[in-house]
Simulated scan of single mutants.
Amino acid sequence: MAAFSFQTLQNKFDQLRSNKVFELLVIGVIIVSALIIGVKTFEVPDWFNSALNILDWAITLFFLTEITIRFIGEPRKRDFFKNGWNLFDTLVVTLSLIPIGHQDMALIARLVRVFRVLRMVSIIPELRTLINSLLKALPQLGYVLLMMFVIFYIYAAVGTTLFGAINPTLWGDIAISLLTLFRVMTFEDWTDVMYETMAVHGWSWMYYLSFICLTAFAFLNMVIGIVVNVIENENKAEEAKLHEGEPTLIDIHAELKALRAEIKTLKQ
């Protein structure tokens, strides 16, 4: 009888956790939790701050209840921890419940709940497709980023050797030169850096223009192209799943041809 009652409870929780209204309620509470963190950064009256603390604990209890419902509603409990979002939520709720004596550490633990806003990815299909596309593009992006780092390193070594004496603040060592080159690539007052070195080495404009052409124009466009290509493939895969099982024009023509043959046979 107890097993039957637990099975009934599990089925009800399984239906509840897959209910869209329940998902929207969870997302609403997540947004309210994030807003509370933002409100606490302002100067508010003591009574209002106390009310926010009570609401904060109520939201924490709601999160704990939600995790419990999802765990009990899972037919196979091991599968619950195979989902990355479930692990993330469990970690966030656990950090919110751990009693920490230091006030700053307790605030950091509560701040972790802000990241639960990412749960909206599991509800909005477009966001889910975007995240999947980015993850699938990482292997291809890795080689492009590796090549970009090689270019950065070579130019940083050259820049430190040639321009280190001109401005040690920007070209003092290879690490600082890498930061300076990142500034040049993002076009953040890069002309000021160039004119400073051109006052000593008039040809140094070739150094900057060649670096910008390789990084800002070539490699960044390659990164964008890879991401766009993967997103298009993901969209095509989603459309194929939606239309899976539907007859194509070739199938329809084949069926019509077979029907004509059967009709012809019946007439004979």
Rank of each mutant, 00 (worst) to 15 (best):
A3V: 08
A3H: 11
S5L: 15
F6Y: 12
Q7N: 13
L9T: 02
Q15H: 14
R17I: 06
N19V: 03
K20W: 15
V21I: 15
V26K: 14
G28Y: 04
G28C: 07
G28R: 09
I30S: 04
I31G: 05
S33R: 15
L35P: 04
L35F: 03
I36N: 09
G38R: 07
G38E: 10
V39N: 14
F42N: 08
F42M: 11
E43N: 13
V44M: 00
W47T: 09
L52A: 02
I54E: 09
D56R: 12
D56K: 02
T60W: 01
L61P: 09
F62C: 05
F62H: 06
T65V: 14
E66H: 01
E74S: 12
P75V: 06
K77T: 03
K77D: 00
R78G: 11
N83G: 00
G84D: 02
F88G: 06
D89K: 10
D89R: 11
L91F: 10
L91P: 10
V92Q: 04
V93G: 04
S96Q: 07
I100M: 06
M105K: 12
R110H: 10
R113G: 01
R113E: 12
R113L: 03
V114N: 10
R116I: 00
M120P: 04
V121E: 00
S122K: 10
I123T: 10
L127C: 01
L127I: 04
R128N: 14
I131E: 14
K136P: 02
P139W: 06
V144A: 02
L145W: 10
L146K: 00
M147N: 07
M148A: 00
F149N: 11
Y155L: 03
F163C: 05
F163H: 07
N167C: 04
P168W: 03
T169I: 13
T169H: 15
T169L: 12
G172C: 02
I174D: 06
I176L: 00
S177E: 08
S177M: 00
F182L: 15
V184D: 04
M185H: 09
T186I: 13
E188G: 08
D189V: 02
T191V: 12
Y195D: 12
T197C: 00
S204W: 07
W205M: 12
W205I: 12
M206F: 13
L209V: 04
S210A: 11
I212C: 07
I212F: 07
C213S: 13
T215C: 05
M222T: 00
V223I: 09
V223K: 03
I231H: 10
E232T: 09
E234I: 03
N235G: 11
E238H: 12
E238G: 05
E239A: 05
E239L: 12
A240S: 11
E244L: 13
P247Y: 05
P247V: 07
T248W: 03
L249N: 14
L256N: 14
L256T: 13
K257A: 14
A261W: 07
I263W: 08
L266D: 14
L266H: 12
L266I: 12
K267Y: 07
K267S: 11
